[in-house]
Amino acid sequence: MTRTNRLLNRVFLALVGLVLIAAAAWIGNRAYPLLEIPALPGTLSADLLWIIVAACAVLIVLSIAWIVTRGRGRQQTVLRVGGDDGSVAIDARVASDLISEDLKSVNDVSSVSATAFRVGREPALEVRVDARRGADLRTVITSVTGSIDELDAVFEKRIPVLLHVRGSSSGVRLTK
């Protein structure tokens, strides 16, 4: 979802919706003629038919292409330093391991997970923290912010981080 253009998505949906509504009006008009709107011509010239076929093919190809490119932009590596003679890459799991350990003593946090993804060209980290019922949000957020500050030092880099504080799902999670 980091790669889709949200405004374009909505414009597209609105257009398709309007086209459908117009088509519905046209069909309804055929049943109960209210307006003078031409019906579909009975026979079309071969040229026109081939143009239609081409248009349909293009539509199908573009549609499939769009559907396929719906990559969520997720990746494993949160940090990579590379060169000709090799590289060092750090997985998102390392971040969640470190943060999880750091928040061990924070009761309000029941579990921590992290994934990396691309935003623009940069890798970013999404940290999901499950909070216990009635947790003090300030405690949770301050704790995680503290962990990330330390993480910045460990990674020697300030990685963009999205913290998502979720409610624990029903039931007790013994993740810690």
Partner: peptide
């Protein structure tokens, strides 16, 4: 690691890439 591979195996190494998968704290 790169140096030791060359010394111990005698192979010439072009690149060594390390991916850190987990942190054992």
């Amino acid at each position: 690691i790169r140096d030791d591979i060359t010394i111990i195996t005698g192979r010439t190494v072009s690149r060594v890439s390390i991916t850190v998968s987990r942190a054992e704290v």
